[in-house]
Design a protein around this nucleic acid. Structure first.
Lengths: 242, 242
DNA sequence: CGGATCATTGAAGTCCCTCAAGTCCTGTGG
DNA sequence: CCACAGGACTTGAGGGACTTCAATGATCCG
């Protein structure tokens, strides 16, 4: 039933660092199971200390934080290959909640075993830290977007990042990829109102740069989008996988 | 001349996790020297791959990213105890630049030795990852601020975080702490214009909540500030030190 | 004293938000 | 089969939070 790490379909993508056979075997031993969840399922809650950590095998989701006034900040979108629960695993408390947007299947690991990464498999521990660094890097870029980019620049930035990431995961076919989020999700990710997000997306469509509708994202002019977004490096960050 | 890790003045503060004598000795061996820099000195550059990593012994600074249009996003303020260069150490490339605001003294480590953390001292490697997780946690909160808080809420949030952090480092005396940044720095950190930042600070002063002038920050009503900022947890994140 | 840097304040403009409808689609039940 | 409700998306109108422009103080320093 469950996917064997040995046959993990994710590792074939070039974005992911190679993994030694020993590492693969180690992870297999560490993997306690597989979990399938439906759209809308909460996976981790802010402030909680989950006993389980996950690597996303497939499906998409999002990380978010709620404020006391009811407003929601989407911290990041979650794609296959992402590791979920690092903060719980290391600090013992999540700083955000995690929720499934589509059906997802997750590889399940035991939090209590994390220490074995460090004790027995330093290579794996290094990969975990690497993943944390990648996340920090990305959050810094997101911060720059919310703080310094205009609405249209922000949207362009987000679509470029999504598209490039999707492409690196083999999710793009004929110039389009599945993008199952709601406009409200993206609005909450960029600190924009739903209305303005909608109008700005219409502007991008009119400029023949990107079309997003019915859960499908088509980028017609990636370089044009990147120019608006002031992005110079279109290569996706190479990263390890757990 | 150089401070011995054994006598490190930082470790005495409660915010920092205890360190075993073995860990202290290990770090001492790992420490290649001490560096003193003047205000305004660039310490690390975005995109660079520094051969050296640092722990801040004292002084303050900031991390920032520049955009193609010349706008600057301050990613975070740097206080004593912060580790600088994680991304270079792990990914081989910094996602932001780092600059000294005051005179700073930094403990210097060799990037090439980082792997020894993982190979020889898993406890230290774990601490490094912990630090990365703390940073990720904080960036998520900052993201929520830029995306969802109004100007006055943002300023209140920033001042609370700074003050609580300063207090945990013993920098607060008689209700005030040294806060050597420019208004432009804080404006760039919160994605606000200098003018509006100035006016909003005046509003906080008028409400008798916080006074910041001439490099000194005085918080008269921490709870009042926290209420405006919608912060419920005023305890600083406990963290390890490298 | 001139020049530079930072803080402050007023005024005008704009990007984006909120409010308010309205469309389209899907699912449900009478 | 159609009425109705709910959810996501769309569009228009008006207002406001914040930006930009511009000028003035205040302080420091060669």
């Amino acid at each position: 039933m469950a996917t064997k790490c040995e046959n993990c379909p994710l590792r074939q993508h070039d974005v992911f660092e190679d993994m030694s056979p020993e590492d693969v075997r180690f992870m297999q031993r560490f993997k306690v199971g597989e979990m399938a969840v439906d759209p809308g399922t909460p996976i981790l809650m802010e402030g909680s200390n989950s006993p389980q950590l996950y690597t996303v095998l497939n499906g998409m989701g999002l990380r978010y934080k709620m404020l006391a006034n009811g407003r929601r900040q989407v911290v990041s979108l979650i794609f296959p290959g992402d590791f979920v629960g690092l903060q719980a695993g290391i600090m013992g408390e999540m700083g955000h909640s995690v929720e499934a947007t589509t059906k997802m299947t997750l590889c399940v690991f035991d939090r209590s075993e994390i220490w074995k990464f460090f004790k027995e498999r330093p290579e794996r521990a290094f990969s975990l830290t690497w993943l944390a660094a990648v996340e920090e890097h990305f959050l810094g870029e997101t911060l720059s977007t919310l703080g310094q980019r205009t609405a249209i620049q922000s949207l362009a930035w987000a679509l470029v990042r999504v598209f490039v990431r999707g492409r690196s995961l083999g999710l793009v076919h004929n110039g389009a990829m599945s993008f199952p989020f709601k406009q409200q999700d993206i609005a909450d990710a960029l600190g924009l109102s739903l209305v303005h997000t909608n109008k700005t997306l219409a502007a991008l469509k009119k400029k023949q740069l990107a079309h997003w509708s019915e859960g499908s994202l088509r980028v017609s002019d990636l370089q044009g989008l990147a120019d608006i977004a002031m992005i110079d490096d279109l290569s996706p960050a190479r990263r390890p996988i757990l």
